[in-house]
Design a protein around this nucleic acid. Structure first.
Length: 184
DNA sequence: CCCTGATTCGC
DNA sequence: GCGAATCAGG
């Protein structure tokens, strides 16, 4: 049974857990696929989009902001080789209930820095401060690490999680939003 | 022409 | 599952 190599994305894979975390964080911030792609590095914008779709964070077509697609998804991609009559697409059941989804609150900043400036008041985070997103950016309690990160965008603790695919979970799990603070 | 995301298919 | 290619719109 040589099933497909469904080896889940782990350390070593393109999308490690840490990578996916960043992808989610940046996506929630409203960064564009290209921005995220460049932020992560090594991945193309299409890769980011594809991954976001697989994660279930399929954009959401923000109709409000100027530009950025506002069309129906009933478009057929290029006929690569054969028209292969696939199954008819379901009329996309709309789950409008519950709270606002990630795509519902996404904004459209021009850059990461801009996103940081608007989401959280990081006026005190000019440089060498850990930029690890804590909690949901859309949450009022959202905050950034802010610990000393002289070697990179993240502090020692988060750097390990960002660059290493080792999900070093804290003893009691993850720190709750708001309480996210790195011991400087 | 630039950008964006969405979709599909092949690997 | 991942990503290039392509489409489509602003």
């Amino acid at each position: 049974m040589s099933s497909s190599n469904s080896v889940f994305a782990k350390a070593g894979s393109v999308w490690s857990e840490a990578r996916v975390e960043r992808l989610n964080a940046l996506l929630l911030q409203g960064l564009s696929a290209s921005q995220i792609a460049k932020a992560l590095g090594g991945v193309s914008r299409n890769a980011v989009i594809g991954k976001s779709h697989r994660l279930g964070l399929a954009g959401g077509s923000p109709p409000s902001p100027p530009g950025r697609r506002a069309t129906i998804p009933a478009r057929a991609a290029r006929p690569r080789k054969a028209p292969v009559p696939r199954c008819p697409r379901p009329p996309t059941p709309e789950p409008p209930s519950g709270g606002a989804s990630a795509a519902a609150v996404r904004r459209r900043p021009a850059s990461v820095v801009e996103a940081i400036g608007r989401v959280a008041d990081l006026t005190a985070l000019p440089r060498r401060a850990c930029r690890w997103p804590i909690g949901d950016p859309k949450d009022a309690a959202f905050s950034w690490c802010g610990a000393s990160a002289p070697l990179g965008p993240y502090c020692d603790d988060h750097r390990a999680r960002a660059y290493r695919a080792t999900p070093v979970r804290v003893a009691s799990g993850r720190a709750p939003a708001g309480a996210g603070r790195c011991a400087a």
